[in-house]
Design a protein around this nucleic acid. Structure first.
Length: 563
RNA sequence: UGACCCGUGGUGUAAUUGGCAACACGUCUGAUUUUGGUUCAGAAGAGUCCAGGUUCGAGCCCUGGCGGGUCAACCA
């Protein structure tokens, strides 16, 4: 069934385990029944479809239960972050269809409160300054199976620690020379509880606070506390943070002044076949020039998918369909493509385009005659109306739509065969011409005037219907055909190979095509279904005198005979 | 060989307080079609990682295995 996927009538599904938790919290009156989530990106790169999964959850839960969702930039590491990313992230979230209203926050907004909280921990003897190198501390940390040993600085007095911490922030000590650690348990079976570093010295200017601070909180020290400051009730994050939860809770427990405390719940991160979603790899693809940029249509970034022609609705529906669990899952990218086709099938007007032209000359059609043939824009949506396309004596059809010696189940053009030219006439192949290499160069046909679309013989059945464009009216266009960027289903799942070893050399193919004249009026990012060829959109680089189209996704191909 | 998490058709998810394993994608038929698309009708495909236990009855509960993931950044 695919009748109820529109925005107004979402798929009927039972609550996922996170919704079940939220519903239980509401039922028991936890936090007075408030539901408040947050989406917390670090502004150090572009958002990709994996982030979309988190965004749909964070904003989706808030919307479903009448709560709020904050946008919070987790900007605790100035050496990696930049305003460029802040802007792109905001744009991408809006494009996806979500709104944080006036709740745009930054972890850096809380640097003052966080610093004060650190001082409090120091006074309570729950944090200390460590002068060792990171190597020394790593050695003392032990291993998952061997308990760690305590730092020689662990017994410093609160007074000394406070003084050192202030001087760290005053810039008196070089980067890397000292850190502030929480004093928890060096023998904990959970590595994150072995006196984790909570503050480090960084001299890199911060994109928002500039030179104001010389010490910056670590993720673990900033996240739960930021949740607390914002009144977040449900802090949803991905599975790899599961082992951080005890530390999250430990810190919040020491910070809270009332009964309210945010709670972290983890869900599975998105994995897609033939796709890499690690920021490191995506950055490498851009830096090494394997793709043209973050918005290259082959990239799984939201900006790339948008340029490719994917719609926000299709991405939201896709997220809806894959669900949220704690299972390490790998989703078939075909599911995403299905969601795109499903959406585009309803909204994309059908147009004529020929990617690999073969000239057909209709010998009994008058030279110089032009007929305007009416054709419907979208059979899925009558309200999209119709338009006319010019028909002439010479037209182009797809090279693959003619075979000299067609197999039995082939029902397109061949010697002596009849086909209908969509919205025009039935033609019959009388002859064809080949060049020295044996390549077919022209096909000669006759047309039956009575079979004109809407005419007296219009109902006559023939096996095939072909798309075509008038050879004298067609516009030349550049069409970019995209294939998967990686040739392996799990490019990241190999021991001695990197995803780069599986780069698909044919991920981009550029062809010169002929398209119907009406496309001159197309706007950037407009969607089209090129008859029998797939869904395309007009690239933002396109100019009226040089049309450029991207193939968003192919049509479902049920014919095993190839093309 | 520590802690935590996970294990249902090929893939991803469902399965009210234990009650004949459901849905989507994919695959395969057939019908319709001026798109080999769409739409429609139907089919195949798992007995729920394994072994015990509790129970009239277990995918759901218990025990023990096996398998997979995360964690030893002054990243998030």
């Amino acid at each position: 069934m695919m009748t109820d996927h529109s925005e107004d009538t979402p798929r009927k599904k039972g609550p996922n385990f996170i919704e079940a938790i939220v519903e239980e919290d509401i039922r028991t009156g936890r936090d007075s029944g408030r539901v408040h989530t947050r989406f917390p990106p670090e502004p150090n790169g572009y958002l990709h479809i994996g982030h979309a999964k988190a965004i749909c959850l964070d904003f989706g839960i808030a919307k479903k239960y009448g709560g709020k969702c904050n946008l919070r930039f987790d900007d605790t590491n100035p050496s990696k972050e930049d305003v460029e990313y802040v802007d792109s992230i905001k744009e991408d979230i809006r494009w996806l269809g979500f709104d944080w209203e006036d709740r745009e926050y930054y972890a850096s907004d809380y640097f003052g409160q966080l610093f004060a909280f650190a001082e409090e921990l120091i006074r309570k003897g729950l944090a200390y300054v460590d002068d060792q190198s990171s190597e020394e501390m790593a050695a003392q940390k032990g291993s998952p199976t061997v308990a760690g040993t305590e730092s020689p600085y662990r017994k410093r007095t609160p007074e000394e620690n406070l003084d050192l911490f202030h001087r760290m922030n005053a810039g008196e000590f070089p980067e890397g020379s000292r850190v502030l650690r929480a004093r928890i348990d060096m023998a904990s079976p959970n590595m994150h509880m072995r006196d984790p570093v909570i503050y480090r010295i960084l001299f890199h200017p911060h994109h928002r606070t500039g030179e104001a601070w010389k010490v910056y909180p670590m993720y673990d020290f900033a996240h739960g506390q930021s949740d607390y400051f914002e009144g977040v009730t449900h802090s949803l994050c991905t599975l790899e943070f599961e082992v951080h939860r005890p530390l999250y809770d430990w810190l919040v427990e020491h910070l809270k002044e009332d009964s309210y405390r945010p709670r972290q719940t983890e869900f599975n991160r998105l994995n897609l076949t033939y796709t890499v979603l690690s920021k490191r790899l995506l950055l490498a693809l851009v830096k090494e020039g394997k793709v043209k940029g973050w918005d290259d249509p082959r990239m799984p970034t939201l900006t790339g998918l948008r340029r490719r022609g994917y719609t926000p609705e299709s991405i939201r529906n896709f997220n809806d369909s894959i669900g949220y669990t704690k299972v390490m899952a790998t989703n078939d990218v075909g599911l995403l493509e299905f969601a795109v086709r499903e959406d585009l099938n309803k909204r994309a007007p059908r147009v004529m385009a020929v990617l690999d032209p073969l000239k057909v000359i209709i010998t009994n059609y008058p030279e110089g005659k032009v007929e305007d043939m009416e054709t419907i824009n979208n059979p899925e949506d009558e309200s999209m109306g119709s338009r006319t396309i010019p028909f002439t004596r010479e037209v182009y059809i797809e090279r693959g739509d003619f075979m000299e010696d067609p197999p039995k189940k082939y029902f397109r053009l061949g010697p002596g065969r009849e086909v209908r030219l969509k919205s025009a006439y039935i033609i019959q192949c009388e002859d064809y011409k080949k060049d020295e290499t044996g390549k077919v160069t022209e096909v000669y046909c006759t047309y039956d005037e009575a079979t004109r679309s809407g005419g007296s013989q219009a109902d006559r059945k023939v096996k095939g219907t072909l798309h075509w464009v008038s050879a004298t009216h067609a516009l030349e266009a550049e069409v970019r055909l995209y294939d998967r960027l990686f040739s392996d289903p799990e490019p990241g799942g190999h021991k001695d190979k990197t995803p780069m070893d599986f780069l698909n050399p044919d991920s981009l193919t550029v062809v010169k095509a002929y398209v119907e004249p009406s496309l001159k009026q197309a706007n950037p990012l407009d969607h089209f279904q090129f008859q029998r060829l797939g869904y395309f959109n007009l690239d933002p680089d396109s100019r009226p005198d040089q049309l450029v189209f991207n193939r968003t996704v192919t049509l479902r191909d049920t014919w095993g005979g190839g093309n």
